[in-house]
């Protein structure tokens, strides 16, 4: 059963998250060079295990997913790819809606609802996004972000087979979000599986260049991804487009220690 396959996947995620939690309570120490900037992205007590899963995922991607995605990218016109992205994004309505509200963003919740109504009807079942052009920009939120907004730390970094980079908080959030989405319970398993595959391939096709760039631009691709994932999630939690100084990262830009001969 495809549905059970998917369930198994999430079981793996939960188990991995729990294992991560166990490890993180004990030995999580962030690397620091003593410059006052603590590299919080490096809280990675399971680095050896993570690196092996990362290697596995990367090979799987290189030899299966990426080639299929490249074929799909060649085959499917950009507008079609865009519409498929829109379609699956529209299905995340319950998740976005609930998490907006849970974060106290009632305006965001209202816009999310408006988007769903408009895009599901005028937008032809979500294939198009007329709502965005009418001033209702997407308000994506997930439970990992909700937890983060209320102060839950990310916990240890995890690389989960088939799922990729996560941390304890976001892994737990993913399970909750999965419970929030109605789709898995009402749709035929085969359709669900096909949809999942299409969504995965289509999403991968959208970042072919970006992944190649990341590999070319990094000296340690594993650390690149770990750090990018951490920064990205932190940015999403405090909402990217909020216009306030980045006070928490201030020490990042401090090089005054450079002039001081002592400490």
């Amino acid at each position: 059963m495809p549905a059970s396959a998917r369930t198994t996947l999430f079981r793996i995620a939960i188990i991995a998250a729990m294992v991560g939690l166990l490890f993180s309570t004990g030995s999580a120490t962030a690397a620091s060079d003593g410059s006052g900037w603590e590299d919080a992205s490096a809280r990675d007590p399971m680095e050896r295990v993570n690196r092996s899963f990362f290697w596995f995922n990367d090979k799987l991607d290189t030899y299966t997913l990426a080639p299929v995605a490249r074929g799909w990218d060649w085959l499917a016109p950009k507008p079609l790819q865009r519409s498929i992205t829109n379609f699956f994004a529209n299905l995340r309505f319950p998740v976005n809606m609930v998490n907006n509200v849970l974060q106290g963003k009632f305006g965001g919740g209202a816009i999310t609802t408006g988007r769903f109504v408009v895009n599901s009807t005028i937008g032809l079942a979500g294939l198009f996004d007329p709502a965005a052009e009418w001033g209702m920009a997407p308000q994506p939120e997930d439970f990992g972000q909700t937890l983060g907004r209320w102060g839950t730390p990310p916990g240890a970094y995890l690389v989960v087979p088939l799922l990729g980079p996560l941390n304890v908080r976001d892994g737990g959030g993913m399970v909750v979000d999965w419970g929030l989405s109605v789709v898995p319970f009402v749709v035929n398993g085969w359709i669900l599986m096909g949809g999942g595959a299409l969504s995965t391939v289509n999403t991968r096709a959208g970042v072919l260049q970006e992944v190649d760039d990341a590999k070319a631009a990094s000296l340690d691709y594993y650390v690149f991804v770990r750090n990018a994932y951490f920064q990205r999630r932190q940015a999403l939690i405090r909402d990217l487009d909020v216009d306030e100084p980045t006070t928490t990262e201030e020490d990042l830009y401090d090089d005054s220690w450079n002039e001081e001969p002592g400490d």
């Binding site: 992205s41 490096a42 000296l219 340690d220 990217l240 990262e249």
Partner: peptide, 16 residues
């Protein structure tokens, strides 16, 4: 998209 080039490279260089 919220990912600082400085922070990302610093993390890599620090590990190395």
């Amino acid at each position: 998209e919220g990912v600082s080039l400085i922070a990302n490279f610093r993390s890599q260089f620090q590990e190395i």
